[in-house]
Design a protein around this nucleic acid. Structure first.
Lengths: 217, 217
DNA sequence: TTTAATATACCCAGTAGCACGGATACGTTT
DNA sequence: AAACGTATCCGTGCTACTGGGTATATTAAA
C-alpha cells in the first residue's frame, strides 16, 4: 500500500473513441492518485508508445478497428507480464470475456456501468487485485456453471468432403460435381455416403442445415 | 446569427454510458456558446425532463437499453418539431441511418470521429443546418445510389406447400409426407414440383436455403 | 514400421425423386 | 356465364441418388 500512497499510478488509455478517452480523463482529473501518461485512439501506435514509456495500468477498449483489445493484451502481457490491463467494453458477451481472460486481463468494466466503478477498478488493479463489473462476473459464473459444454461432438469433415458439401449446397448433382473436381461420379457418391454417415443426416435437407450450422456455407 | 451570439445554446445529453456523457461535457467546458441544461442515462426519464425544460439541441445515443434513439427522436419531434436532435452512434449502418432520417434527425455523428466534429455539428444545428459525419454521408449516398432495392420478388407459397417444405426440411421422404398429410405420394410430388418452380430452385439444397431465408424453418 | 485417415474408384440392387402426362375444384375477373 | 388462375389430386416411366459392399494409393500419426 505504501507505494500507492507515495507515487502516482501511471495510466495509459487506448480507445477508438476520442470522446471516451476524454470522458475517462474528465473522470480522473480530481483523482490525484492517478496520472495519465498517455492516450491513443490507435492500438498499434499505443503499443509502441507503451513499450517506450510503460505505465502501471493500461485502460483499453476491446472492439477497435486496427487491433482488438484481446490482441493488444496478449502482446503487452508477453513483454510486460506485470503490467495491469483493464478492459473497457460496451458488451459483456461470453466469447469476449473468455478470450480476454485467456489473454490475461486484470479487470473488465462495462462502459455503461457507473463512473465510480472505473475508479474502483483502477484502485483494485493498482494493488494487484482483479476487478470485474457485476454483469461480467455474472456472465463468468454462468459460463462456469454451465454443465460443461453441451458437448455436441465435433463432426470432422475432410477438406475434400467440405468441397463436396459446398457444391451440393449449390445444387450441383453428382455428375457435375465430378466434372468440377475432375473425379469420377462414383467417387463423389462415396464422398456423399461418408458425409451423410459422418453428419448423421439422411437427406440433403439435413445436410444443408448442418452445413449452415457449421458455417460451411 | 444574432440570437446565437446573444444567448447560449441549451443542450441536453442522453446516453447509456455515463463516461460518454462526461466526455461530451468535458469537450464543451471551454465552449461558452453552449450550455448543458441536463443529462440522463435513461432515455425515458430524459423524455420527461425535456418536456419540462426544453433545450435547443438534444444529443442522443442511438442504441440504448430502455428506448432507442430512433423512438426518442420520433416522440420528441412530435411534441417539439423545431427541436434539433443530434444522433451519436458507434455505428453507421444503412438501416439505422435510414430510420433516423425518417424519424427526423438533424445530425448524425459517429462516436469515433474527431472531437471537433461534435462542436461543428452543434454549431450547424444551432443555425438550422443539418450535419452528418463523412462516413454517414458516404453511407447515405451509397443507399441513394443503389439501383433501387434488389426488388427480390415475393415468392408466395400456399399453406399446403409450406407444410410440405417443412416436412422436407425434416428429412421426410415423399411417401412419409403423404402418410402424414393423408395424401398420395403422387400429390406430394406435384407439390414438390410446384415448390421448386416457384422458388426457382432445382434441388432440396436450394429449397432449404430458401426456407431458412424465408424463415419457414 | 505398422496403423489410421484420406482420397480415389468401382459394382450392384433398390428406390426416391423427376419429367411428362392428365384431372377436379374453387374463387375472381370480365 | 365463360375464362382464368390457383390449389389440390393422381398415374407412368426414366434417371439420379442411396446403401451395401470392395479396393488401392498416399499420407500422417503412433
Amino acid at each position: 500500500m505504501s507505494s500507492v500512497l507515495n507515487k502516482k499510478i501511471k495510466l495509459y488509455i487506448v480507445d477508438d473513441h476520442q470522446i471516451m478517452i476524454d470522458g475517462i480523463k474528465a473522470l480522473l482529473t480530481n483523482k490525484p492518485a492517478f496520472e495519465i501518461i498517455g492516450e491513443n485512439t490507435n492500438p498499434i501506435n499505443a503499443l509502441e508508445e507503451i513499450k517506450k514509456n510503460t505505465p502501471d495500468i493500461v485502460i483499453s477498449d476491446i472492439n477497435m478497428k486496427e487491433m482488438s483489445g484481446i490482441e493488444l493484451t496478449k502482446q503487452l502481457k508477453e513483454i510486460f507480464p506485470d503490467l495491469k490491463i483493464l478492459a473497457l467494453s460496451m458488451f459483456g458477451d461470453k466469447e469476449t470475456i473468455s478470450e480476454m481472460l485467456e489473454a490475461g486481463i486484470n479487470g473488465y468494466v462495462l462502459k455503461n456501468t457507473g463512473t465510480d466503478e472505473l475508479v474502483t477498478a483502477l484502485t483494485k488493479l493498482s494493488i494487484n487485485q482483479p476487478f470485474f463489473s457485476d454483469e461480467v462476473t455474472t456472465e463468468m459464473m454462468r459460463v462456469i456453471s454451465t454443465p460443461k459444454t453441451p458437448q455436441k461432438e465435433i463432426i470432422h469433415l475432410t477438406p475434400r468432403e467440405i468441397e463436396i458439401v459446398k457444391l451440393i449446397s449449390e445444387e450441383y448433382n453428382n455428375a457435375k460435381i465430378g466434372d468440377k473436381l475432375f473425379i469420377s461420379e462414383r467417387t463423389v457418391e462415396t464422398h456423399r455416403k461418408n458425409i451423410f454417415r459422418k453428419t448423421n443426416t439422411k437427406s440433403v435437407a439435413g445436410l444443408i442445415k448442418f452445413a449452415i450450422d457449421q458455417k460451411i456455407i
